[in-house]
């Protein structure tokens, strides 16, 4: 009978589907493969960055744009300098690929960002020769927050330095 055959097929399909679902439940949920950046520690603890990186970047963006504040701590360029690393082939992954730090997770979470419509998605060091002579490197291959740790609290000498500079203008 045609009807019974149809019924059998349907039942078989349901069985197969439930098998797949149970199997999936036992497996580890797939996680994004996030490339490891340079250095040991980001500018904030990792859980904080995971949760709030966009708040830091957004606030910094407005401060930079409107008030000219160019500290490096939450600068997008510095984020890219550390976090976007070459793949096995030695090429810098483009934003959008799962190999790119930002898109590895943003693809996974399906959260759309338009930062890289305008911003470079590669670290400054990637530009090397292509960089015109009128660009000078800042940070770049020498990211500040690992290599340039302050030696300690400001010394008397530091303060004297500033006062000396101050006086020289008078």
């Amino acid at each position: 009978m045609r009807l019974t055959r149809q019924l059998k097929v349907t039942l078989a399909l349901i069985g197969l589907a439930s098998l797949l679902i149970t199997a999936g439940a036992h497996a580890e949920p797939p996680l994004p493969d996030i490339p490891k950046g340079k250095g040991e520690q980001c500018v904030e603890p990792t859980p904080v960055m995971r949760k709030q990186h966009f708040e830091f970047i957004l606030r910094h963006r407005d401060l930079t744009m409107h008030e000219g504040i160019r500290t490096k701590k939450y600068s997008l360029v510095e984020c890219i300098n550390c976090h976007v690393v070459p793949n096995e082939k030695g090429e810098y992954p483009r934003f959008g690929s799962d190999e790119h730090f930002c898109s590895s997770c943003h693809n996974y979470a399906s959260v759309k960002i338009d930062c890289f419509q305008c911003h470079a998605d590669k670290p400054e060091s990637a530009y090397g020769k292509a960089k015109g002579k009128f660009n000078h490197a800042l940070g770049g291959s020498n990211p500040h927050h690992f290599s340039n740790k302050a030696a300690g609290p400001l010394s008397k000498g530091d303060l004297e330095l500033v006062s000396a500079e101050n006086n020289s203008h008078e």
Binding site: T71, K72, K73, H144, H145, N148, K149, A150, A151, G152, P153, L154, D158, L159, V162, S163, E165, N166, H169
Partner: peptide, 25 residues
């Protein structure tokens, strides 16, 4: 660079004094 690059604790600790000085510069 030292000042800006330092950890959060350092920045918090020295903001006021150098801030005043740097302002004159």
């Amino acid at each position: 660079r030292k000042l800006l690059g330092g950890g959060a604790a350092l920045v918090a600790g020295v903001t006021i004094a150098p801030g005043v000085i740097l302002n004159t510069v």
